[in-house]
Design a protein around this nucleic acid. Structure first.
Length: 645
RNA sequence: GCCCUUAUAGCUCAGUGGUAGAGCAACCGCCUUGUAAGCGGUAGGUCGUGGGUUCAAAUCCUACUGAGGGCACCA
């Protein structure tokens, strides 16, 4: 006699076990039509499942978030059926729903190519139209293994073997075809709808392990309706328009070439952006009590052996030798061992702690070729790196200070949304479990003190210590991990760093590794995409263009440009013999934030007509007034705050 | 590193076995111009590199290099 409690609190009783479908029908024909699945006591399941005991039930309709996931998961099943019917001999593996869509990994001697998509999509649409019900069956494990092995589906058989004992082995049928699957699913293939599209093929290792065979993965996107699909495709186009590699080329910020793979050729406009950011960071560091240092690029392998990096990372390091000298050096892949050398140089007193040592550290890492991606992943980069040498007692306080600085910087740079993750000990690590216990609890406590709320990111810590990861969200909703704070009790020991304590004895300092931007290269990539190249005035590589209308106004245009240049702005005068329309267009396309137009009238009256990027309006103002206004506006946010204090 | 895709003029792209093309940009000239492309002309490419097939290769095959999308990696 199950009593079903609905979300509105009403209760319905039934004589015996009932399916969700029956319950929905008992409520109303409309709901019965709309209900795709249900949640029983908080657990999502097929609407055709029987409810045997009292339960709270909520029906999932197409507009619920769960529906989207089911649509995507089911689309993966439909994809798999389509592929197996078109390409016999292809083995199925797994096909989950993912953000914005789904994928399915197949094993086939000949990988799929995008040219196969049209046929597969066509077949998928046929399967959807057939409206085959998804039927769940529970099989004995041996039968399931035998069935899939019989069909030559060795990957599926392996999956079943590895399922925990006692777990139901469920398969879902859709017409003739079936797949091992935990479920739940929609009612029929028809519920998948037709708002899906196959997007790309990719290789993917079986079970994510590079020692396993490479499968061929087909990615698709799927939505509730055509409108949502179109919106998503439009969003992808928008992301492409913002792509920093495209904008970098269009604005002539930087380029890459074969002779220096993974390293940036910064052009003068890009470098202006870079230095504006670096100047800002330098001021922030100074303000927050950091000492800036600069350490060598090429360092003897002995130091890397001592630090433990040689052992773990030498295949990712650029190694250098000289003919006349029997030495091996490496381009530094990070700065910490060098900073320890400065710390160790001479006796340190507890009175000097915490000692915050910062460096715009130029590092090189031999990143795998497949990992390179524009500015986001490069082989030569500069970190806004710092190491805080302190006592264990100071960890919490330093964490509070760091977090404050980090939020201040992100806010100044236009990022409001920040998440924090706590990454704890990885499988492969240096230092004893006891050391790790200590480091992890110290960092957790510091978070508590700092009022930082974090998500758990298990096993993702650095090899020498746990870390906080700061993830910021950009204007189009993508997440980027930039900032980090890592507690390190291992390296000071390995490199024998010590200080003299109050008790006149030697003690080991703790090292906090920390960065806010991460790398300048990557962060600039993010900034470019965040603003789509339309930077706030203080960051814009060219802040103002003064465009003359007639050649008579050219001298005045030069004068205006000179006045702005004197005020510290980056300005160009465009006095070419061209139509003003063409000039406006050209500089707008180049994303110059301010265009000052001057003709005969302005020259006579000593005024300018100011036009902002993205606006059709123009405002007239006196030269002096405009210089003052733009000068104030071009002041970096930290300096602006200062002047208003 | 692995899988797929890809490489033609500065940029965006056309050209699928038979004498390398377009638009924009560049350069030259005319126009002195009032807020997102004025008009005309000129120049520019051993088709990523090396092999191969063919009477003939930008085009087909192959290797390498770079790039793009994933996977793996990310101190």
């Amino acid at each position: 006699m199950p009593a079903i409690t609905l979300p509105d609190g009403s209760v319905r009783s039934f004589d015996g076990p009932v399916t969700g479908t029956t319950v929905a029908e008992s409520i109303g024909a409309g709901l019965a039509r709309a209900a795709l699945a249900m949640e029983v006591d908080g657990k999502l399941c097929d609407i055709s499942r029987e409810i045997v005991a009292d339960a709270g039930v909520r029906f999932v309709t197409r507009k619920d978030p769960e529906a989207l996931e089911l649509i995507r998961h089911d689309a993966a099943h439909v994809l798999a059926e389509a592929v197996q019917s078109l390409f016999p001999g292809t083995q199925v593996t797994i096909g989950p729903s993912i953000e914005n869509g789904f994928y399915y990994d197949f094993y086939r001697n000949q990988p799929f190519t995008p040219e196969d998509f049209a046929a597969i999509e066509q077949r998928m649409k046929e399967i959807v139209a057939e409206a085959e019900p998804f039927v769940r069956e529970v099989w004995p494990r041996d039968q399931a293994i035998a069935f899939f092995e019989e069909k030559g589906e060795r990957f599926k058989a392996e999956l079943i073997r590895d399922l925990p004992a006692g777990e139901d082995i469920s398969v879902y049928r859709q017409g003739e075809w079936l797949d091992l699957c935990r479920g739940p699913h929609l009612r029929t293939t028809k519920d998948v709808g037709t708002a899906f599209k196959l997007m790309k093929v990719a290789g993917a290792y079986w079970r994510g392990d590079h020692r396993n065979p490479m499968l061929t993965r087909v990615y698709g996107t799927a939505w509730r309706d055509q409108k949502e699909l179109d919106a998503h495709l439009h969003q992808l186009e928008e992301a492409e328009r913002r792509d920093h590699r495209r904008i970098g080329r269009e604005m002539s910020l930087f380029h890459f070439q074969e002779e220096a793979v993974g390293q940036v050729f910064w052009h003068h406009k890009g470098w202006r952006l870079y230095t504006a950011l670096q100047d800002y960071m330098r001021r922030a560091q100074t303000r927050h009590g950091y000492q800036e240092v600069k350490t060598p690029q090429l360092v003897d392998r002995g130091l890397w052996e001592a630090s433990g990096h040689w052992d773990k990372y030498r295949h990712h390091m650029f190694i250098a030798t000289v003919e006349d000298e029997d030495k091996t050096l490496a381009l530094k892949p990070m700065n910490c061992p060098c900073h320890v050398q400065i710390f160790r140089h001479g006796l340190r007193s507890y009175r000097e702690l915490p000692l915050r040592m910062a460096e715009f550290g130029s590092c090189h890492r031999y990143e795998p070729s497949g990992a390179l991606h524009g500015l986001m992943r490069v082989r030569g980069f500069v970190q806004d790196d710092a190491h805080i040498f302190c006592t264990e007692d100071q960890i919490a306080d330093e964490t509070v200070k760091f977090v404050k600085m980090l939020y201040e910087v992100y806010q100044d740079l236009g990022f409001e949304h920040v998440r924090v993750k706590f990454a704890d000990r990885p499988e492969e690590r240096a230092g004893s479990d006891e050391t790790w216990d200590k480091a992890e609890s110290a960092l957790k406590e510091a978070c508590l003190t700092a009022g930082v709320e974090y998500e758990h990111n298990p096993g993702e810590g650095a090899f020498y210590g746990p870390k906080l990861e700061f993830v910021l969200r950009d204007a189009i909703g993508r997440d980027w991990q930039c900032g980090t704070l890592q507690v390190d009790l291992v390296l000071p020991d390995r490199l024998d760093a010590s200080f003299i304590g109050e008790d006149s004895a030697r003690h080991r300092p703790v090292m906090l590794h920390r960065a806010i931007l991460g790398s300048f290269e990557r962060f600039l990539g993010i900034l470019i995409e965040q603003h789509a190249g339309r930077f706030p005035l203080w960051l814009a590589p060219v802040q103002v263009v003064v465009a003359s209308i007639v050649s008579d106004a050219a001298p005045y245009a030069e004068e205006v440009a000179a006045a702005l240049r004197d005020a510290g702005l980056s300005v160009e005068a465009d006095t070419r013999n061209d139509k003003i329309n063409a000039k406006i267009r050209e500089h707008s396309v180049a994303r110059v934030p301010v265009i000052l137009v001057v003709g005969r009238r302005e020259a006579e009256q000593r005024t300018v007509a100011m036009r902002r990027l993205g606006s059709q309006d123009q405002t007239m103002a006196g030269l002096e007034e405009i210089v003052q206004q733009l000068k104030a506006e071009a002041t970096p946010p930290d300096l602006r705050k200062k002047s208003t204090h």
